[in-house]
Design a protein around this nucleic acid. Structure first.
Lengths: 102, 102
DNA sequence: CCGGATCCGTATAGATACTG
DNA sequence: CAGTATCTATACGGATCCGG
């Protein structure tokens, strides 16, 4: 990873991708079951979804809870660190709403 | 591009990458010559830099001005649309400062 | 000289089918 | 239902070359 003198670089290493902010944004309303969350992220592939939530979990932004039932049930939720991104995520959503046509 | 019901998706299509926010952030202070700007983005390759500023220009976030001199001189600056991202960029920088160790 | 275009080898993303 | 395996397509990095 390249070193940079600005903290923004650190932020981008955690959420500077196409999918991570979307996943975090949809978790702002509360925990979601894996399949439900994935369906909300339209266009993401199965592989990228799994890979991305793993990275978010490793970086401490989301928590993963496995319920030992059949059929399998997994829930994702925001950690405190993840919740602290709420302002940024909502700002990005609002900015998009300002310029998005149709 | 996948369709999504939230405007956040639109935002991420414009700035949801590793480099775009960094470039925009460094232009907040004013226009910069191409080489100077690139040096500030530590770790970016020549190819990615050129490609990324082209995309930012096409999306109307930055402006590119070419001076017909020798040696060549090119300056990049934020458009009004680009400037409207200032809050988001500074928030991301501040968030990184909060969690960044060393 | 500076900005950036091109070429090629590697790495990462994406689609699909499959397993417990 | 959640996640993995495999294969293909695309994105990326680095070196090199080019025009002004």
């Amino acid at each position: 990873m390249s070193k940079n003198n600005c903290p923004l670089h650190y932020t981008l290493n955690l959420i500077g991708t196409k999918w991570k902010p979307l996943i975090l944004f949809h978790l702002l309303e509360g925990p979601l079951r894996s399949g439900v969350l994935q369906k909300k992220i339209s266009g993401i592939s199965n592989k990228m979804f799994t890979q991305t939530v793993r990275e978010l979990e490793q970086d401490g932004l989301i928590a993963r809870e496995v319920f030992p039932v059949v059929p399998p049930k997994v829930e994702y939720s925001l950690t405190d660190k993840g919740k602290s991104l709420e302002n940024i995520l909502r700002n990005m959503d609002e900015w998009g709403a300002t310029f998005y046509k149709d």
